[in-house]
Amino acid sequence: MMEAGKEIETRKEQAPVTRETIRNRPVYLPPVDIVENNDAIILLADMPGVDEGNIDIVLEKDVLTINGTVEPEYHENYRMAYAEYGTGDFRRSFTVTDAIDHDRIEATMKNGVLKLVLPKGERARPKKISVTTV
């Protein structure tokens, strides 16, 4: 029955294989929203099934990688009768500019959504220059 589940195409997008993983599991690209306000860039990623403890956020030079592992869905004494989505890990990388204050990045996880707040460095913040009359 597990095979039947695998054959169903899911709407989740599989991550392109750049490096092979140790675990033989599908890896999906989490859909993201990226919003910028005056102080920070906020990244929201849908990663259902990922626990706070199973998420890795790595910033290496200018590449920010988010990686979440999911426990495979399995119910003892049940057989899978119908499948529309597959379960697997999530991974996605982004290039961040040095306009981001690398030391103050904050991450929170709630209801399967990762929220990353990337504060802008002093340099990148909009400055208002007031004009004085002479």
Binding site: T10, R11, H75, Y78, R79, M80, A81, Y82, A83, Y85
Partner: peptide
């Protein structure tokens, strides 16, 4: 949302 169904 996409669903999966398990049964016995």
């Amino acid at each position: 949302p996409a669903i999966n169904l398990w049964m016995n």
